[in-house]
Design a protein around this nucleic acid. Structure first.
Length: 278
DNA sequence: ATTCCCTCCTGCGCGC
DNA sequence: TGCGCGCAGGAGGGAA
């Protein structure tokens, strides 16, 4: 489910409930997600206070402090099918509820049917999180000032693959997943098949702007239904409603008379309008 | 260095 | 109604 906007909305939703709160227990029910859940987490986290709720790419970073001293950072990734929600204490555990962060009065519960998610730990100051192997390889934040036309144009200059899989490469730009890659390219009027190094600088600028706008719009849209996303079953259907091309194969383009086409790129579905996007 | 393909898992909708 | 198949919003790793 989650690309950058969903994770950011999730972060905004859980932050107020978590900040300054003490973790009184930690429950690990499934030892293995994409990688093993560190078995020492209960010992590390119990008695800690959540001192920060950050996001890097699609990762959530929870800074944990004991008696005012930062101990380290709990790193969470929702994978394809993960979600976080607050439930009252005593709420029965369901099939894919793998991990609980127990606070006084409520529980932050992590569920993930496909188990592509990650729960990891990085000891040290908040800045040390950037050193974790999962985090250190990440590319530029698309909503940060570092995501400039100059940087992007230079970054894709040597890439001859189609722009769509390049846009999804988290080592370049983080957070742009399969949905928003298609949506951003539609917004920019660029074909997903176009070789990255054959996009003019002017159109690069359009793409940078489009990626930003697409992600920002999605965050804004998600923000209005944030409670549903965080507090209910995490279905989060609200994000897909506004898709211009994603999952609209055969339907008509919102901008012209063309028909949305679905193709396969690097093993993933791509949707685009062959008329609007060149 | 870049790119393609496979892999980890479960659930769902589809066609037969 | 049941079954097999393909596909699903992520991302690391190995091979070419």
């Amino acid at each position: 489910m989650p690309e950058l906007p969903e994770v950011e909305v999730c972060r905004q939703g859980i932050a107020p409930e978590l900040l300054g709160r003490e973790i009184i227990d930690v429950v690990i029910r499934v030892p293995r997600l994409r990688q093993p859940v560190p078995p020492e987490l209960p010992a590390l986290l119990t008695g800690c206070v959540v001192a920060g709720v950050r996001r890097r790419g699609k990762y959530l970073l929870l800074d944990c402090a004991r008696k005012g001293v930062v101990q380290g950072c709990l790193i969470l990734h929702l994978g394809m099918s993960g979600n976080l929600r607050f439930v009252p204490q005593g709420t029965p555990v369901e099939k894919h509820d793998h991990f609980d962060l127990v606070l006084a009065g409520q529980i932050l519960r992590f569920a993930d049917p496909r188990r592509f998610g990650v729960i990891a730990w990085q000891a040290g100051l908040p800045e040390a999180a950037a050193l974790h192997p999962l985090i250190s390889v990440l590319g530029v934040e698309p909503l940060s000032e570092a995501f400039t036309v100059d940087w992007f144009h230079q970054a894709i200059f040597r890439r001859s693959s189609p722009i769509k899989p390049v846009l999804m490469d988290g080592h370049l730009v983080v957070g742009v997943g399969n949905i928003y890659a298609s949506e951003s390219l539609f917004r920019a009027g660029i074909s997903p098949l176009r070789a990255a190094n054959r996009i003019s600088r002017v159109r690069c600028e359009l793409l940078v702007t489009s990626v930003r706008a697409t992600l920002s719009d999605a965050i804004a849209a998600g923000g209005s239904s944030i409670r549903d996303y965080v507090h209910s079953d995490g279905g989060a259907g609200c994000f897909q409603i506004q898709a211009a091309v994603y999952d609209r194969a055969g339907e008509s383009c919102l901008r012209c008379d063309g028909q949305i086409r679905q193709i396969r790129q690097a093993g993933r579905s791509t949707y685009y309008c062959p008329v609007c996007q060149r």
